[in-house]
Design a binder for these strands. Structure first.
Length: 440
DNA sequence: TCTGGGGTCCTAGGACCC
DNA sequence: TCTGGGGTCCTAGGACCC
């Protein structure tokens, strides 16, 4: 059996945890750059504000109903997420952290010891709420896909009080019939259109499909597994998270700029900063990367036809996690793809092809790579320590700093040219000394 | 004026190898 | 007319997830 614990409206709930006055009123949280709606309270959903909608399109609705609006505060959400996950790691023998706000618990053979899994789930839910003020729902089922489905039904049906267990076939049939096919985990927009056109409207309909049908219409083996999981046959194992942290196969840092940019120096600063961030994340998970991709994008909503993005990928001679290496490779790639006279609105750096740091895999017949310079590695360690202590980006490579102010008489825009808007951000009350709550 | 930022897995096709 | 049968690696792209 699996349990899926999923936080309700996670970003909004994090804001509410420190501002109880937000309870009961409509609240939304915005994406980076204050562009789109990415989290909504139940009251905001009821007003018809949709997930992913651009802020400027719903502004009338927001003003009319006095919806509270917040820029995203990832320092706060990340910290709240670890609090929730740390507790879950204590509370269950096996935990897979699936995202910032969701975790699968492995409950194989646990019913013997726990008695009712549903009672256990209710206890977990109450504990998470008491410790963090974050509301959750829990779904229990023999497969991950059914646990997701159970969780969804628990969220929608208030009489269930946040927990639904699908341990019996009867319970499963009942739940499958209630869920529209587009709400099944793994059915997105494209598949939903196709399925409805063929008369498959609910999860129960989908669970009755043949293996051949699933393979043909739902992306091959992926779709076949999806249908099997709905039928109650597990195809996905738990992937337990070590140390309560996620370990990635790729790491990206990509951003829309605060305003469109056409100066190479400005874009170069952005790319250097993104490469630095990506390198930090890479070191934190103890990996080195072999492959580096840089891309720059023009406005995809503008009149110009696609493609809007230029990118290039580089296989590095030696896998590395050094900020200095990655910044210099990244800016070299940028110089190859940047075109003068064009205006760019976004850039990104993506790292791939990971190995564990300190033990690169040697391929047969290849010469051993040069050892990482101990000095460079010590330097990166100091860099990470300083930034942990004095705040992110306290120490940076010079390339990531904004270029020098322009000569007098020309008007220089204030601040870092590529940095985005954050007009509605709350303080990082749990992670920043400067922004701690003052009581008194 | 204003439109996010991460990730995953899978497939197909081409180059190349024996 | 007929024209092997595997492999691997890489890239691009699609679909999905939170």
């Amino acid at each position: 059996m699996f349990a899926l614990v999923d936080c309700n409206n996670f970003y909004v709930s994090c804001e509410r945890a420190f501002q109880p006055a937000l309870n009961g009123v409509p609240v939304v949280v915005l994406s980076n750059n204050d562009g789109c709606i990415v989290s909504r309270s139940a009251e905001a959903k009821a007003l018809g504000i949709k997930m992913g909608e651009p802020l400027f399109q719903v502004r009338p609705l927001i003003e009319q109903h006095r919806v509270k609006v917040f820029s995203s505060n990832y320092a706060l959400y990340g910290d709240m997420s670890s609090r929730v996950m740390n507790y879950l790691t204590e509370a269950a023998p096996e935990v897979e952290i699936y995202s910032a706000d969701e975790a699968f618990l492995g409950l194989h053979g646990m019913a013997r010891y726990l008695g009712s899994l549903e009672t256990y789930a209710r206890r977990i839910r109450a504990e998470v709420r008491q410790r963090t003020h974050i509301p959750t729902c829990v779904g229990i089922a023999p497969t991950k896909t059914l646990a997701k489905l159970a969780n969804r039904v628990a969220k929608k049906d208030p009489t269930l009080d946040g927990v639904l267990s699908l341990e019996t076939p009867e319970a499963r049939q009942w739940a499958l019939a209630k869920v529209p096919v587009q709400d099944v985990w793994g059915i997105g927009r494209q598949y939903a259109i196709k399925l409805h056109a063929q008369g498959i409207a609910t999860a129960a309909d989908l669970a009755r499909c043949s293996d051949a049908y699933a393979r043909k219409h739902l992306g091959g083996v992926v779709g076949a597994r999806l249908v099997r999981e709905l039928q109650g046959f597990p195809c996905h194992n738990l992937a337990p998270s070590e140390d309560g942290a996620l370990s990635r196969q790729s790491i990206a840092c990509t951003r829309t700029f605060g305003r469109p940019l056409n100066e190479l120096a400005d874009i170069c600063g952005a790319v250097a900063a993104f490469a630095s961030r990506a390198a930090e994340k890479l070191r934190r998970q103890g990996s080195v990367a072999h492959v580096l991709t840089v891309f720059i994008s023009q406005n995809r909503f503008g009149p110009a036809p696609p493609p809007h993005t230029r990118s290039a990928q580089l296989t590095l001679p030696t896998a590395t996690s050094s900020t200095l290496d990655l910044v210099s490779y990244a800016t070299a790639i940028l110089n190859r793809i940047w075109q003068p006279g064009q205006t760019y609105v976004k850039a990104g750096v993506i790292l791939d092809g990971f190995e564990a740091a300190g033990q690169p895999q040697l391929s047969l017949f290849e010469k051993a790579p040069e050892l990482t310079h101990p000095q460079a590695s010590a330097l990166m360690q100091r860099l990470d320590q300083l930034n942990a202590r004095f705040g992110r980006a306290a120490v940076q490579v010079a390339a990531a700093l904004p270029s020098q102010p322009k000569p007098r008489g020309t008007k220089a825009a204030p601040g870092v040219p590529w940095q985005g808007q954050q007009q509605h951000r709350t303080p990082a009350v749990t992670t920043s000394w400067d922004e701690l709550w003052e009581i008194g």
